[in-house]
Design a protein around this nucleic acid. Structure first.
Lengths: 338, 338
DNA sequence: TTCGTTGATTGAAAGGTTTCAAGTTTCGGT
DNA sequence: ACCGAAACTTGAAACCTTTCAATCAACGAA
């Protein structure tokens, strides 16, 4: 059924090798035969079999980016940065969604390794997983995105989440808040852990003890979970209820904000809110959201560059790059003029 | 360097065939040898070469979804629906982003066909492109998502965009608006065209001529373009300025809204806004957005089911499924009580 | 003891491409 | 007309699996 190089060769009256040359080394073939072969290929609808090609030639023209949550605009923006860098080269990017589940991530990594992709960009569920060493040890380069990893076994591109957490909390403390909620979870997510740690550090620096940061745990970093957190917050007795919330990401913050707005809780007067990521929707929210901005596109571009270098450059050396986050203050934490 | 079945066979003291059987037909092999072979595979870090496997066996366990815009939450939600359906089966989904560019779409489709993926879900730049017939004609099934196509050459799952446009406009007319902006573009995007057509139809039904719908063209369906459209709107002389806007999707609507809020244009009093898609952020916006809801997850699930049927079922027949959109009214179009 | 079964294992062929050493053609120069 | 070099073209081997017909081993039945 399927047309192969052999059929093309026969139909065009040339040898297999020539057909292959038309495909891979057009310069080696005389213009006339090339034209003839190409015509036949078009007529017969020839589609080279990438499996066979890759099997024989050993190379691959696809990369993959395995993200924690494809529905989070933060990650799709990073992906856009990756694509920008790849667009120049003749490479394709497949995006895979681990949905923050180790089993799904493992599945995808397996598949990608079996497929012998040229390289993998990964925002890992657990950056310390030994599976990563195994995979890159066998020859599929991995660049870690939005996380760092102990040691210099891999390239990584990340943002200083601890600093980010610190910035967020300092901002709230500056505005006089002393009972602050940290909304995020599960804490197994590294980003959540680091941002929380940064918040605690800021608290300590301000001479306040940990009791000033009440932790509200969520089961995911989603808008829905943000809404639920809002209910829990609302259920607290007024005296103990926080006057501000630092959310581990913008999705949570948006959910929280939405619930406040619909239930008539005034933001920022009754509750100030800080998010994290500064996704595009943060500034457009009911009350424009103060958020800790990460250079998303840049993250993606840089990660892609590192990966390409590791793929193409034989004396590549691993690099850990860390970007600095930046707090963007908006209405959700404004103090009323008085 | 790389370990192959041959190495495993040697190390385990069995034949190639047996190693392959351990992989593909474990029941055919005695428990004892199976254990031994598996042990050796683990020790040597054997990773089957999918290219070779696919070349010989002819099957593939991956599907792909080529979307128009990976940063649009609408599409990632559809993708989530797809993944839900695929999760049960042992299949992987690769997401590719055409960014609404025909050349990138063609590139991806090419690659995917060369890779011999089991099937493709596609939200096409141009559903009538003959390329689609060629590809599916050669044996790679394609299901069209969020668009329909003349004829019954493919399965498709879509939402009635014309009806959606009509609903949006009827809603605005009901609220007394008679100078309405249609914000969207480029009109080469089918969804934009259909939604506009629906709007025009509603206008006609109301006995108003086309001049009541002023078209503001955008170069993409993004938040940024929405902000720009807002500026153009603001630049119009008061007498001719529309009192309401129907945006071809929620991203535009959010951008428009954001600009209004920051420049002090009151929504809905000075400008009522209707979006399309009802993405998660629509309800959480500065002014909660009235929007035309599409059943996103259901769209994805259904598309995946159709594709699986086409892949697995020899006497599959193509189906065109159309869902009905639904208007969700929120504050952005509320009429002030008076 | 031998035969027939069943179950486990084997080994060669096949799948579609690229590679590369070897062979053939072309062409300018004499 | 002939030579040598340069330009093309060729064909077989190799890439790593899976498949399947054939072989082998074991074991219960006759």
């Amino acid at each position: 059924m399927a047309i192969g190089v052999k059929d093309i060769a026969t139909a065009a009256g040339v040898s297999l090798g020539t057909v292959s040359n038309v495909l891979n080394h057009p310069d080696r073939v005389s213009p006339r035969t090339r034209a003839r072969v190409e015509k036949v290929m078009a007529e017969l609808g020839f589609v080279p079999n990438e499996s066979a090609r890759q099997l024989r030639a050993g190379r691959s023209r696809t990369l993959a980016y395995v993200v924690l949550d494809a529905t989070n605009p933060f990650f799709t923006d990073v992906a856009r940065g990756v694509e920008e860098t790849l667009a120049a080269r003749d490479l394709s990017l497949y995006m895979c969604n681990s949905d923050n589940r180790a089993d799904r991530e493992a599945n995808y990594l397996n598949r990608l390794e079996e497929q012998r992709v040229a390289g993998i960009l990964l925002t890992p569920v657990d950056p310390e997983s030994p599976a990563l060493d195994k995979i890159s040890g066998r020859g599929t380069p991995i660049v870690i995105v939005d996380r760092t990893r102990a040691g210099d076994t891999h390239c990584s591109v990340a943002v200083d989440d601890v600093l980010g957490g610190r910035l967020a909390l300092e901002h709230l403390l500056d505005r006089g808040h002393e009972r602050i909620a940290f909304i995020g979870g599960p804490s197994s997510i590294g980003q959540v852990h680091d941002r929380h740690a940064g918040a605690l550090a800021a608290l300590a620096d301000a001479g306040l003890d940990e009791s000033h940061l009440v932790r509200i745990d969520t089961s995911a970093l989603s808008v829905g979970e943000g809404r639920q957190a809002a209910q829990r917050l609302a259920g607290m007795p007024g005296a103990r209820r926080p006057t501000a919330a630092f959310c581990a990401n913008d999705l949570l913050a948006l959910g929280l904000l939405q619930h406040c707005v619909t239930t008539g809780v005034s933001v920022p007067d009754e509750l100030a809110i800080v998010g994290f990521d500064d996704i595009e929707y943060a500034g457009a929210a009911a009350v424009p959201l103060t958020s800790v901005r990460q250079p998303r596109l840049r993250l993606g571009r840089t990660a892609a560059e590192l990966l390409l270098d590791e793929v193409e450059n034989p004396d590549h050396v691993h690099q850990q790059i860390t970007f600095t986050p930046e707090l963007v203050a908006r209405a959700s934490t404004e103090t009323r003029a008085n």
